[in-house]
């Protein structure tokens, strides 16, 4: 099984009338990888995921998930994937356990195994003591955890998480990610996640940046940041003017003062710091090295920040996001 691609996509395209939501993308995700789809709302991430989950048809191109074609072997794909949708899909009138049982029955799991798995999954997502509670009484974070647990119930090979933290407060977002990372460490599973939060994309092994229906670039978060280039090194010294001059003379760097700090752009900022101390010949009071963020990466490849891109979508994008959250 190893060496096979968990997700393999070629020339995938989806058009709604004249609007091309996905414009012919290629993509490979290795088994066991945590792969992130990053992009603003309306970039086509959800549409692409829907096709991979067999609930939407592609207009052109092909895709296999867990070794099966998403168009012609729908049931085979569905058995092997777990899906956590952007919008909540639990029945709030049922208890946590009833929701899981419903899922297991629909996936045709043998009864004894199902009972065991329900115990395990509830334990895993920390809801064992709430198993008989109606989901109505759950917080947003608990509902999400239940959904993630449910997505894992039938032991999928690939888990799709579409914006798993949307609409959650920062603290809950962080705990969901801790949980996903933990899951990843403990289980032999491929995780395919979409997000429009830059900071969340850093949890992935590899990221594809999607914008306007196209994959702009795909690589590891580290490589993407390196491609964008230099780190930012900011120092506070006893004499900024001298520091700027020496940086030019001795290191060939153009420095400027930003927010009271002398700032230079330099590749491999962390490696540069020891040299800086040794050769600047000035007392350095503080030093900060800032790696380019994925925000910078997005900006470098699309010319805009994610936030700008979303604002350009205007009211309609906002309404969509609100509708998704309900």
């Amino acid at each position: 099984m190893t060496g096979r691609h968990a997700v393999h996509v070629r020339g995938l395209e989806k058009a709604y009338g004249d609007v091309r939501a996905v414009k012919g993308i290629d993509l490979d995700v290795a088994e066991g990888e945590m792969f992130g789809f990053l992009g603003p709302n309306g970039a086509g991430k959800t549409t692409a995921i829907k096709i991979l989950c067999t609930i939407a048809d592609a207009t052109a191109g092909s895709a296999t998930v867990a070794g099966h074609d998403v168009q012609t072997q729908r049931a085979d794909v569905r058995r092997r994937i777990g899906v956590v949708f952007q919008e909540p899909t639990v029945d709030t009138y049922l208890t946590a356990e009833q929701n899981l049982r419903f899922h297991g029955e629909l996936y045709g799991m043998p009864r004894r195994l199902l009972a065991e798995r329900i115990d395990e999954v509830l334990e895993m997502v920390g809801l064992a003591d709430r198993r008989h509670t109606e989901v109505l009484k759950f917080s947003g974070g608990m509902k999400r955890r239940l959904e993630i647990g449910r997505g894992l119930l039938h032991a999928p090979e690939v888990l799709f998480l579409d914006e798993p933290t949307i609409g959650l407060d920062p603290q809950t977002r962080a705990s969901i990610w801790t949980y996903i990372a933990e899951l990843r460490r403990r289980q032999d599973i491929t995780i395919f996640v979409t997000t429009h939060y830059m900071d969340e994309a850093e949890h992935c092994d590899r990221i594809a940046i999607m914008n306007d229906g196209e994959i702009v670039v795909a690589d590891t978060p580290e490589a993407l940041k390196n491609r964008v280039g230099a780190d930012r090194v900011s120092i506070r010294t006893s004499d900024d003017a001298v520091a700027i001059e020496r940086l030019r003379e001795r290191f060939g760097l153009d420095a400027a003062v930003h927010d009271g700090m002398v700032t230079v752009k330099v590749p491999g900022g962390a490696q540069f710091v020891p040299r800086l101390f040794a050769e600047l010949g000035l007392a350095i009071e503080t030093v900060t090295v800032t790696r380019p963020s994925l925000d910078d990466v997005f900006m470098a490849y699309t010319g805009r920040t994610i936030a700008d891109t979303e604002q350009a979508g205007g009211a309609s994008a906002m309404l969509r996001a609100m509708a998704a959250r309900r």
């Binding site: 049931a75 058995r79 092997r80 049982r101 419903f102 029955e105 629909l106 996936y107 045709g108 799991m109 043998p110 195994l113 065991e116 798995r117 395990e120 334990e123 895993m124 894992l152 039938h154 032991a155 999928p156 090979e157 403990r186 289980q187 032999d188 599973i189």
Partner: peptide
């Protein structure tokens, strides 16, 4: 955690049924 082990043993090819019995279980659950 032995959850990992069970998860591997529980992989879909072995877990998930199919056919009429499975469809009926789904109907009954709904």
């Amino acid at each position: 955690m032995n959850a990992i082990q069970t998860l591997r043993d529980a992989r879909p090819d072995r877990v998930v049924a199919g056919g009429l019995g499975h469809e009926l279980r789904a109907t009954a659950m709904v």
